[in-house]
Each structure stands twice: as C-alpha cells, then as structure tokens.
C-alpha cells in the first residue's frame, strides 16, 4: 500500500515538473511549428538567473525569506522576456519561411551558443540556492516524508495548465491563436497580426522554459550542462502527448511521470528504458501522439 501511494505521489510530483519543462516547448511548436532545441537553454538560464538572484538576496539583503518565492519567478520572467524577444526578433523571424527541420538545426546552433553564453554570464561554479526549498517544511503521507515545496510545484503546474487551457479555449486571443495554428495564411488574410502573435508566443514559451528552470533551481545544484539534459525529456513528453497540444503535454507528463515512478519502485533495472519505451509504444499505436491530429493526406 505504501508503495502504491509512493508511486502515485512520486509520479505526480515528477509529472508536474515534466509538465513545467514541456509546456513552453509545446506552446511554441503548436503555434510556430518550431521544435525548439534551445528550450533547454531557456531552462538553464532561468535556473541560473533565479538561483543567482536568490543567492544574492540571502547573502546581501536581510529581508523576509518568503520574498524569495517572488524573486524566482521574477528572475525567470525577466530572463525569459529578454531572451525570447532577442531570439525571435533578432533571428527567428527572418527564417519563418524555412522548413521545420532546418529550424530544429537553427535552434540547435542557438543551444550551443547559449550554452557558452550562460557560462560566460553566470560562471561555472554551481549555484546552490537551497533556501526556498526548505522554507515550507515537510509533511508525512503514509509514513513517507515529502517536501512541501515539491507539493507546491504540483499546484503551480496545475495552475499553469488550467491557465493555458483557459486562454486557448475561452478567450479571444486564444481563438485568434487557434486560427493561426489552423491556417497561418488564411488567418493573416483575415487581418490577424501573425508576426505579433508569433513574437508573443515565442516570448511566452521562452518564459515558461525559464520559469521551469527557476522553480527547479532550489531543489538542485545549478551548473552548466543542466539544459541539455532536459531537452530530450521534454521532447519525449510532448511527442507522447501530441506535439503542440496542451492537453497532450498534461497527459504525456502524467504517463511518463507515473510509469517512471512505478519502474523505480517495482523494477529499478528497467528505469532507464521507461521513457523511451513509453514513447515508442505510444508512437507505435498512435503515430501522431495521444492528442495530436492526424494530418490529412493532401493530394
């Protein structure tokens, strides 16, 4: 019984983290058809910015520790907006006519560049911005101790997920966005300002990536190289769920999160394969992912 509860809790916590990481990726792909490899860098930069700011705050300001909960997202938003705007306006908007695969490679080059720039800006010494992590204390569920910070992330993830769903499905902006997703050219012809939409989407996506990093930062040691590690995970989640679909990202993270937790508890030796196994299985059954729309075969 303890094991079953543990699997559920661990799976949920991990899934919420996966969703945070994958949300920005799927938003950008959904609207812009860019599979953004540099998403990992946004995550890393968000983490570094958040960790650096929190470390600075605790070292130099003798304020209320709870302010750090605001500092983390603030750092992420600033980093995400600056970075998103710079990349979209400075590079990507000139390349929208290129095909999808070339864009993957463009963002891969971007990943390489940002990886070194992060190192130049934040240095290579790990940031250990642990203070916010312990602040909320811990609780006991079925004899197991959980960190309240992790549980808070579950709530944050759920809020972002429902917020994204609401914006897409219940607001005018969302409707316009879906129109762009459905047919970019027609939307443009109907007077939708597509380039502004694209810029806004990219900035939001980048900010979500940075936010994921910043919120993870207190639980890890932030050092160069953390960005590369999350890309493939995020890809797996998004592909399982269906590229470009928020619902898909939710279900994808839950599936990957729960199956990994189950593997860790019940069969640790297969843990390494679980993520790719789930991905291969889902694709074998439903090639377009769980929530992806099958493309019509055009003659």
């Amino acid at each position: 019984m303890t094991t079953a509860i543990a699997i559920g809790m661990d799976g949920l916590i991990y899934a919420s983290w996966l969703f945070l990481v994958a949300a920005g990726l799927t938003v950008i792909y959904g609207v812009m058809r860019i599979l953004n490899m540099a998403h990992g860098s946004f995550y890393a930069i968000g983490a570094s910015a958040g960790a650096a700011l929190v470390t600075w705050y605790f070292a130099n300001v003798d304020g209320n520790a709870y302010w750090s909960f605001l500092l983390l997202p603030a750092a992420a938003v600033v980093a995400g907006v600056i970075l998103g705007l710079a990349v979209e306006q400075g590079l990507l908007r000139f390349l929208y006519r290129q095909n999808e695969i070339l864009m993957v490679i463009v963002t891969y080059a971007l990943l390489l560049i940002l990886e070194d720039l992060t190192k130049l800006v934040f240095g290579v010494d790990p940031y250990f911005a642990y203070q916010p992590y312990g602040l909320l204390g811990r609780c006991e569920i079925a004899g197991l101790i959980f960190s309240n910070y992790d549980l808070m992330l579950v709530a944050v993830s759920a809020t972002i997920a429902s917020g994204a769903w609401f914006i897409l499905n219940r607001t005018v902006t969302g409707k316009l966005l879906r129109a762009v997703v459905h047919d970019r050219e027609i939307a443009m012809a109907m007077g939708v300002n597509v380039s502004a939409m694209f810029a806004a989407t990219f900035v939001v996506g980048a900010t979500l990536g940075a936010l994921a990093g910043a919120l993870t930062a207190p639980a890890i040691s932030v050092s160069p190289g953390i960005g590369v590690e999350v890309i493939i995970l995020a890809f797996a989640v998004v592909v399982v769920g269906g590229l470009g679909s928020i619902e898909g990202a939710i279900v994808g993270s839950l599936m990957v999160g729960l199956s990994r937790a189950a593997a860790v508890h019940l069969a640790p030796e297969i843990e390494l394969f679980v993520i790719y196994g789930v991905m291969a299985l889902v694709l074998a059954v439903r090639p377009q992912g769980l929530f992806g729309r099958a493309a019509a075969r055009k003659i």
């Binding site: 543990a6 991990y14 639980a219 190289g225 953390i226 937790a261 508890h265 843990e271 390494l272």
Partner: peptide, 18 residues
C-alpha cells in the same frame, strides 16, 4: 540506478525510504 544528470530523485528517495 537513476540516469546520470537526472537532477530529480523524488521517486528514488521514496523507494529507499520504504
């Protein structure tokens, strides 16, 4: 045996605690 550079060890910590 979690994957190297995984960063998140929630499930492993639970499993060992159990």
């Amino acid at each position: 045996f979690p994957k190297i550079f995984q960063g998140q060890y929630g499930a492993e910590i639970s499993a060992i605690s159990v």
